[in-house]
């Protein structure tokens, strides 16, 4: 049964492997896996904080929200890192990625827009995840 599993893995790897990754050598570096494990905790922390924040805003009698779409910039190069960043932003309550343009800009829907400036919004939305994602994927 293990031999059959190895054969199936080989077939799917040969057939679809060049779709999956473009830099196979990067997968061998153990430091990346260490940062990947760290990223789970970072993401969990920010998701918890954002949950509490959104719950506070919903339960507050005045409902202090200021929704809008902001444009933020990312320095990440690889497609995988950009996708992970966009999905992390979507997973965090209160912010949601609307679109991802080719030249490194994300359009994010934000429940409480504190600044429409690109630099400032980038610092607040993307800055939490960007450094650690760069260590994982690049």
């Amino acid at each position: 049964m293990i031999i059959a599993g190895a054969l199936v893995a080989m077939i799917s790897g040969v057939l679809l492997g060049k779709m999956t990754t473009r830099h196979p050598g990067r997968g061998l570096n153990p430091v990346r896996y260490f940062w990947g494990v760290c990223y789970i905790f970072v993401l969990a922390w920010w998701v918890t904080m954002a949950n509490l924040d959104v719950a506070f805003r919903v339960l507050h009698p005045d409902v202090p929200i200021n929704p809008g779409i902001v444009k933020v910039e990312t320095d990440l190069e690889s497609e995988s890192a950009k996708t992970a960043l966009a999905n992390s932003i979507t997973l965090t309550p209160g912010t949601m990625t609307v679109d991802l343009s080719d030249d490194g800009y994300l359009y994010v829907h934000w429940i409480n827009v504190s600044s429409t400036d690109v630099e400032e919004a980038t610092h607040q939305v993307v800055g939490r995840f960007e450094p650690i994602l760069r260590r994982i994927f690049e």
Partner: peptide
């Protein structure tokens, strides 16, 4: 590109 990457 998000859909493409996740598909990949």
């Amino acid at each position: 590109s998000i859909v493409k990457t996740v598909t990949r």
